[in-house]
């Protein structure tokens, strides 16, 4: 538990420094901590901060090359916020350098629909994953023989690479596939908007609900059992015990789990990219960025910066207003340990 050296031992080693001992310890610990942490921070700065700053600089430059709409040559150079305006107001350069709204079918016309699709997937998948995950966690928390089989089984979908998951569900949802055979339907699952989205959502729920369930289970196990006993004695019903004890006490863990899942779902790429290639109303923001990279870096950089900002804002709202304090729970007893 305690991270401190025993004061007695400490003072016997450094005689005559009772008062300054703690202070000096803090200082040496600070120096040691800096030494240990700096390498990681430097690496993170290189692999994350540098590319992000680079992306912002790129996003303010014009892509040079042929305009995909008009076929005229566009010179590079500083562009101000033109790339951002291009995405947010869906405006492309028309003939003779005029500004027109992007023709349907071009990537420029897809920003808001991609944003909508991304949020649609996020809300639906996280909603079902939370409900199902909670249910799974409640079952896993019960004591019964064979519980370890259950806990091992839920790890299987989690361990399978998303790319393999996508191919697996693509096969299950094939026209002659097992889903249509089993339910006696003949749906072209990846061929139109509704079924394509449903297929991706089902695959995502299958893959990530176990992760959600395990996070919630860990939260459930933090609740001391005698609270339930006391409530039982006081005559609380099962539903009351769930609503008055389980829900409020598991809430911090639940909010962190939801935050993790939301941020993960907002960058969804693998499943739609492999199952539909983004066709039929399944283009997420990540897919749009990747498609744009092949056409023009700078415009793609603007879009990826917008994506990053959207995710950042959502995370901020969660932490600030919904009390999903991941940092606090990650730092654990750190606060309690401080003198």
């Amino acid at each position: 538990m305690s991270t401190h050296l025993d004061p007695a031992v400490k003072s016997s080693k450094t005689p005559g420094s009772k008062e300054v001992g703690a202070d000096r310890k803090e200082k040496t610990q600070g120096r040691l901590a800096a030494m240990l942490i700096t390498p990681t921070m430097v690496v993170l700065a290189i692999v994350i901060a540098y590319p992000v700053v680079n992306a912002i600089i790129m996003s303010l430059q014009q892509d040079e090359g042929l305009d995909p709409v008009t076929g005229t040559f566009v010179a590079g150079g500083f562009a101000g916020f033109a790339n951002y305006i291009h995405w947010i107001f869906q405006q492309c350069t028309g003939p003779g350098g005029t500004t027109v709204s992007c023709p349907p079918g071009t990537l420029g016309a897809q920003f808001w629909s991609a944003t909508g699709v991304t949020f649609f997937f996020t809300v639906i998948t996280v909603f079902f994953e939370t409900i199902l995950g909670f249910w799974m966690a409640l079952i896993m928390a019960r004591a019964f023989r064979g519980r370890s089989v259950l806990r091992a089984a839920v790890l299987v979908p989690w361990a399978i690479p998303t790319a393999v998951t996508a191919k697996l569900w693509f096969f299950i949802f094939a026209f002659d596939g097992i889903a249509n055979t089993l339910f006696h339907t003949s749906i072209l699952w990846t061929g139109s908007e509704g079924p394509a989205r449903a297929a991706i959502i089902i695959a995502d729920i299958w893959k990530t609900t176990p992760f959600m369930a395990l996070l919630i289970l860990a939260g459930l196990q933090m609740i001391p059992g005698d609270i339930y006993e006391a409530a039982k004695v006081d005559g609380a019903s099962t539903w009351q015990r769930f609503r008055m004890i389980t829900l409020p006490l598991v809430k911090p863990a639940l909010m962190v789990a939801i935050l993790f899942r939301v941020l993960d779902a907002l960058r969804m790429y693998d499943l739609p990219a492999i199952m539909t290639g983004g066709a039929n109303g399944t283009t997420t923001l990540s897919i749009l960025v990747v498609n744009q990279i092949r056409i023009g870096f700078n415009s793609a950089a603007a879009l990826s910066t917008i994506t990053f900002l959207i995710i950042f804002i959502v995370a901020f709202i969660f932490v600030r207003f919904l009390g999903a304090n991941a940092v606090e729970s990650a730092s654990g007893e750190a606060k309690g340990k401080q003198k």
Partner: peptide
């Protein structure tokens, strides 16, 4: 530091892939 680490782990891959691709 913990905040930075957590933020980094939630970082969207697309945000770094464009500049890295060009680089």
């Amino acid at each position: 530091v913990l905040g930075v680490v957590l933020g980094a782990s939630m970082f969207p891959g697309v945000a770094i892939v464009t500049p890295l691709f060009q680089l």
